[in-house]
């Protein structure tokens, strides 16, 4: 076990949670993340390996799907992000690469992103102040990349009109937190 202590994207030893009105904004750090990209001409092998690994096919464009411990998110043509619990999957890239072999390129993304989960009945009102994604129409499982206050973000609807995850490049953590809390106060 190494001797370096982790810091959260917001710079604290532990993730922060803020309650504003009925909304809860939580910094999520217990999630490992890796990108998986199909290699050219390996469609067949990739489909088989992915199905074996995740017990399901990878999702279509615009979709997040939970499959056992793995969250599967479509990110682009032939590309997915895979989520898994950090405690058990800190080496997620190795785990996935072992399963997918040379059918896919795998890249560790865990610390490339900051994730905030926003929960509460007014989450859509909050998102409507920040980003052009049609959050009111997004159903559980909808996932899309878009702009949020000048930051490129991944928006995932975990539960319709109740719970969304927002992921931005990690260095934006403070600005994204500011945008979310400001919008939460703004909607009153």
């Amino acid at each position: 076990m190494h001797s370096l202590a982790a810091l959260t994207p917001l710079g604290g030893p532990l993730p922060k949670t803020e309650k504003i009105g009925t909304l809860t904004i939580s910094e999520i750090t217990n999630c490992a993340l890796a990108s998986v990209t199909l290699r050219r001409g390996k469609d067949q092998a990739f489909a088989v390996a992915a199905e074996t690994l995740f017990a399901t096919a990878l999702p279509a464009p615009g979709v997040w799907q939970q499959a056992g411990v793995y969250g599967l998110i479509w990110m682009g043509p032939d590309q997915w992000f895979i989520e898994a619990p950090f405690a058990s999957h800190e080496d997620i890239a190795q785990i996935l690469k072992a399963g997918l072999g040379d059918s896919a390129s795998v890249t560790e993304q865990t610390d490339g992103w900051v994730r905030f989960d926003v929960q509460g009945a007014r989450v859509v009102d909050l998102l409507e102040r920040l980003c052009p994604a049609p959050s009111r129409r997004m159903q559980t499982g909808a996932a899309t990349r878009t702009l949020l206050e000048h930051m490129g973000c991944l928006v995932i609807c975990r539960e319709t009109a109740q719970h969304f995850s927002l992921l931005a490049p990690r260095s934006y953590a403070k600005s994204l937190a500011h945008a979310l809390t400001a919008a939460a106060r703004s909607i009153g």
């Binding site: 199909l38 050219r40 001409g41 993304q109 610390d111 260095s171």
Partner: peptide, 15 residues
């Protein structure tokens, strides 16, 4: 379009 090459940014994943 047929080169077997995949790219992704890892700028922020590594200090």
């Amino acid at each position: 379009p047929d080169l077997d090459v995949q790219i992704i940014s890892t700028t922020e994943a590594w200090a």
